[in-house]
Structures are given as structure tokens and as C-alpha cells.
């Protein structure tokens, strides 16, 4: 079995390395992906780089392409993350109360454990507000610097995970209960889809942000697109935050959502 696997892997690898020799050189600006094919006009990425600033007033091209030009794609990526969270609920969440696991917490609060918790707990109590503030900054400032809904959402979710790791899962669940994170995940997707539908109600296409200037009261379509992108990113961040914490809470406690790691 092992030798067969090695053979298959080596065959695949040597075929790929053979294929690599036909690739454009490393860092070539004229490769088909970067410079387009000759005779077919500019490549789509060139258009993105040249037009984004004028059309959307967003300096970070990656955010603009993510939330505006490829908004439909990003919406369903968010739905995939939501579906992954729901799948985890379906797979390991147990609804009945188990009494045996109650003894485990008593063992945890031994003298040794307590001493560790004082140092780690105090450090995390100071650190967590800073992390959360940074996460919100990443979401809100995703237009002008690296960042956006996915990164900010993951960091915000990680701050709740840190509460669970430093203390116990129950402390984290008191601050961010199951009801809250499931509804938060739904609200995130509704915000995203809501921006799309709002565009349709105002006479545009689904996820066409330009027409939202009547609602957002901005001067000009580019600013409306910029502001809608922020709204959409907030929706993504809510879903990602909630699902990251939901996955952690379920994995750490075997689906009981108490007495976890």
C-alpha cells in the first residue's frame, strides 16, 4: 500500500514538474494571467487595477474586487462557511444533558490549575479588548489597508476562542451564547443578501451597489459603492465570527457546549 502510494505520488509529481517547464518565468509581467493573451485585449486584472480607483474610490483593489466585482462569488463563499457551521451542528451537537461530565470541572479547579489560570486569565483579560478593537479596525479599514470582513471576522472569532482557552468554555458561552452566535451567523448573510436585494428594489441588478446612492445619500456612484462594500464586509465579518466560534465550541466540548478544553 505504502509503495503503491509512493509510486502514484511520484508519477503525479514528475508529470507536474514536467509541465512546469512550459510555464512563464517567475515574476513575468507578460504571462497570460498578468498581461493577457496577445490579440485579445487587456486582461481582466489589468482592467481591475486601472479602473477600481476611479469607479469605486477604494484604494485596496483586493477588497474592491472581492466585495464588488466578484460580490456574487463572495456571497456564496459566505454561505459555504455558514453551511459548514450548520453541518458541524448536525454532526456532533448533542442536545441531551449528560451528568457524568460534571465531575471533570471539579478536577480542573485543583490548586495547580488555579495558579495557571491566574496568570493566563489576567493576561487574556487585558489582551482580549485590544484584540477585539483591532478586529473591528481591520473590518472597518479594509478598504484602505490589508484587511476586510474575512480577516476581521476570524480575528474577532479568535478573541472569543481565547476567552474559552484561557478560562473555560462556559465563561465564553456566557458572553456569546449558542442562540446569539447562530442568529449572528444568519444576520450576517441577511445583511449581505439584503444589500443585493436593495439594489434590485431600486431598479438595478442584484448586488449592483451604484444605485444605492439614493438610500445611502452619498455624492456620486463611486462613494455609494465604497460604502456598500463596507456594509457587505460587516455582514461577512458577522458570519465568519459566529461560525469560527461555533466550530471551536462544538469541537472542544464534543458537541455538548460545556466543560470544553
Amino acid at each position: 500500500m505504502k509503495w503503491l502510494a509512493l509510486l502514484a505520488v511520484c508519477a503525479t509529481g514528475s508529470l507536474l514538474i514536467y509541465g512546469v517547464s512550459d510555464f512563464p518565468d517567475w515574476g513575468s509581467a507578460n504571462s497570460p494571467a498578468n498581461g493577457g493573451v496577445e490579440g485579445a485585449g487587456a486582461s481582466i486584472s489589468e482592467v481591475f487595477i486601472e479602473e477600481t480607483e476611479t469607479l469605486t474610490k477604494v484604494p485596496n483593489i483586493v477588497t474592491a474586487v472581492l466585495a464588488d466585482y466578484r460580490g456574487y462569488d463572495t456571497m456564496f463563499e459566505t454561505v459555504v462557511i455558514f453551511a459548514a457551521g450548520m453541518a458541524i451542528f448536525a454532526i456532533i451537537r448533542v442536545m441531551r444533558d449528560t451528568e457524568q461530565t460534571q465531575d471533570k470541572t471539579q478536577l480542573d479547579s485543583s490548586v495547580d490549575g488555579d495558579h495557571q489560570r491566574i496568570i493566563v486569565g489576567t493576561t487574556c483579560r487585558i489582551l482580549i479588548p485590544v484584540i477585539q478593537l483591532f478586529a473591528l479596525y481591520v473590518v472597518a479599514h479594509g478598504h484602505h489597508s490589508p484587511g476586510g470582513g474575512f480577516q476581521g471576522g476570524v480575528i474577532l472569532g479568535a478573541s472569543f476562542i481565547l476567552i474559552g482557552l484561557a478560562g473555560n468554555l462556559e465563561t465564553a458561552m456566557q458572553r456569546f451564547s449558542e442562540k446569539q452566535f447562530v442568529s449572528m451567523a444568519c444576520i450576517g448573510i441577511f445583511i449581505y443578501a439584503g444589500f443585493g436585494l436593495l439594489g434590485q428594489f431600486l431598479g438595478g441588478d442584484f448586488l449592483e451597489y451604484g444605485v444605492l446612492q439614493k438610500v445611502l445619500l452619498t455624492d456620486g456612484e463611486p462613494m455609494a459603492r465604497s460604502h456598500s462594500m463596507l456594509g457587505v464586509e460587516i455582514g461577512v465579518a458577522l458570519t465568519v465570527t459566529a461560525i469560527m466560534f461555533a466550530i471551536y465550541a462544538n469541537l472542544a466540548s464534543k458537541g455538548e457546549l460545556k466543560n470544553g478544553l
Binding site: 494571467a33 498578468n34 481582466i44 486584472s45 481591475f48 487595477i49 483593489i61 483586493v62 474586487v65 472581492l66 466578484r70 462569488d73 463572495t74 463563499e77 459555504v80 462557511i81 459548514a84 457551521g85 453541518a87 458541524i88 454532526i91 474575512f150 476570524v154 465568519v240 461560525i243 469560527m244 466550530i247 469541537l251
Partner: peptide, 21 residues
Amino acid sequence: NPLPHVLMLTAIVVGVATLGV
């Protein structure tokens, strides 16, 4: 080129969600 970044950024986050599953 920003386009591969966009495509892969979402792929990473979806990847961790599927790893969780």
C-alpha cells in the same frame, strides 16, 4: 495581479471551515 489574491483569500477561509467539518 490582485485577482488570484481575491480567489484564494476566500478559499483559505472556506478551507478552515471545511477542516472544522
